[in-house]
Design a binder for these strands. Sequence first.
DNA 1: ATTCTTGCAAAAGATTTGCAGGATG
DNA 2: CATCCTGCAAATCTTTTGCAAGAAT
Lengths: 148, 148
Amino acid sequence: MDAYHAAVELDAALRSHGHRVTRARREVWDVLVGADEHLSAQGILDRIDGGDAPINESSVYRTLALFAELGLVRESRLDETATWELFHDDAAIHLVCADCALVIHHDTDLVHDLRRALEQRSDFSPVDIDVRVTGRCHNCASVGTQMA
Amino acid sequence: MDAYHAAVELDAALRSHGHRVTRARREVWDVLVGADEHLSAQGILDRIDGGDAPINESSVYRTLALFAELGLVRESRLDETATWELFHDDAAIHLVCADCALVIHHDTDLVHDLRRALEQRSDFSPVDIDVRVTGRCHNCASVGTQMA
DNA sequence: ATTCTTGCAAAAGATTTGCAGGATG
DNA sequence: CATCCTGCAAATCTTTTGCAAGAAT
């Protein structure tokens, strides 16, 4: 998503629900659009500080809550602190290295399989599927092997 | 797992790693063995209070951290507060109702499939797979239908 | 102009930590 | 009896909230 379309999307999403377009919201949005990873509230703040005038912590939280409500972002609680990323409706799952905390995005249609399987249950209608795999990335795994 | 075997397992796990068997650890363990759901630290405390002398909050946290380190329990962060349950190496995934917060445990070997698929990647060795599905349970889904 | 948002500071809630006394091996 | 654990209270950290001033429509 390029900057122009990102801005238009934010604008439309906000206005169509009667919300105002403010600097805080644009800044947070820009950071999320530019991020290749999920970011914590602090991570977002840090990346905004690098720019011009700072945005207050609480404004970031309020903005993220609003974005989530509008379906623009998704909140994860993979770790002790919450993180956010742009919403994307794909089959990505997260592979988290237990040693170095590297996060790999991995696409697999097993998520779709799982969704299909769940949809056949009469007692639960799935909406959101979140898969987190903990393990060891290539680097950390090979370090462990050398020590053995 | 009956009470006898549960006690023996805890005893062995602790002693084999040089840790002592204390009342706090037994109490927390008993609660977890008897629980049919994941419990928060507070939930564990509440269930202990019902018994005899109370156990301190911080002891519960320290105990849970130790249990997790020994692989006896698994910590989840499905919600804003962490919850714990006995470790069980099965294919259970969690179905969480977005409306009433009901949690359904669902067994599916798609988790094993996913593990197998991941093990073929050269760059990541999976250890733990955690699947959380948000959606609507039968009850809440039918309420939504009636309103439409 | 009106009402929505922000910044600030304080509050709230969960989890962690230091330390002295008590329990365990 | 030497050391590990616990309880207590205070600290820490993330997230939330009230309120007056500032910005957007």
